[in-house]
Simulated assay, not measured.
Amino acid sequence: MKCPFCGSQDTSVIDSRPADDNTSIRRRRSCPECGKRFTTYEKVETIPLIVIKKDNNREPYDRTKIEKGVLIACRKRPVSAAQISKVVDEIETEIFSLEEKEIPSTRIGEIVMEHLENVDPVAYVRFASVYREFKDVNTFMDELKRVLDK
């Protein structure tokens, strides 16, 4: 691993342990050239995932789009940053556990809604209203009734 401070190619691992999310390894490293220490994270490389959009265009999977949607849905709600990060990790884990090379964006939206419904009902309805493109108040009310009946 190349030292980010001096560029030396000869760094050594001091300590390794699972990261907080338990899906990666946190390594403390030391550079014998400059004496500085730094942290790296090692994560399993996943197969490239292609998202099939509603208009049949294809684009590479982008985690930040899920994060952005969840953040907007949870805005001004009692959902902590840690909860948001955890739910995005869970969503991503579920998506990649499908072991598909291509996945429709509609399936990703359904997975996001399933997880948001467990986190915060208001955030769920907000996300659903945009994702399902509610056309009128009646559609919105139908979804609210479904949530309240649970």
Rank of each mutant, 00 (worst) to 15 (best):
M1F: 08
P4E: 10
F5I: 14
C6H: 08
C6W: 09
S8H: 08
S8L: 07
Q9K: 13
Q9R: 10
Q9V: 09
Q9N: 11
D10E: 14
T11D: 02
S12V: 14
V13Y: 07
I14C: 08
I14H: 09
D15L: 09
S16L: 12
S16Y: 09
R17C: 07
R17E: 10
D21G: 08
T23R: 15
T23K: 14
T23Q: 14
S24P: 08
S24V: 08
S24H: 08
I25D: 01
R26I: 02
R27L: 01
R27E: 04
R28E: 07
R28K: 15
R29I: 01
S30I: 13
S30F: 15
C31N: 04
C31H: 04
P32E: 12
E33S: 15
E33Y: 10
G35P: 02
K36M: 13
K36Q: 15
K36V: 00
R37S: 05
T40I: 06
T46V: 11
I47F: 09
I47V: 08
I47E: 14
P48K: 10
L49M: 06
L49D: 04
V51Y: 03
K53A: 04
K53H: 02
K53Q: 13
K53R: 13
K54R: 15
K54E: 12
K54I: 01
N56I: 01
N57M: 08
N57H: 11
N57Q: 13
R58N: 02
E59P: 00
P60T: 06
P60Q: 02
P60M: 07
Y61N: 07
Y61E: 06
R63S: 05
K65H: 11
K65Q: 11
K65G: 11
E67K: 10
V70L: 01
V70H: 03
L71V: 13
A73V: 05
C74Y: 04
V79I: 11
A82I: 15
A82N: 11
V87R: 10
D89C: 03
I91E: 00
E92D: 15
E92K: 01
E92G: 02
T93C: 00
E94F: 06
I95K: 01
F96S: 05
S97P: 00
E99D: 11
E100C: 02
E100R: 14
E100F: 05
K101I: 03
K101S: 13
K101D: 12
P104V: 02
S105M: 02
S105W: 06
S105D: 05
T106C: 00
I108N: 03
G109E: 06
L116Y: 00
E117W: 03
V119T: 05
D120R: 02
P121A: 05
A123L: 00
Y124N: 07
R126E: 04
F127A: 12
F127D: 07
A128I: 00
S129D: 08
V130I: 14
Y131K: 00
Y131I: 00
E133F: 01
E133Q: 14
F134I: 06
K135N: 13
V137Y: 14
V137R: 11
N138R: 10
T139Q: 15
T139A: 15
L144G: 04
L144Q: 05
R146H: 11
V147Y: 04
V147F: 00
V147R: 04
L148I: 10
L148G: 06
K150P: 02
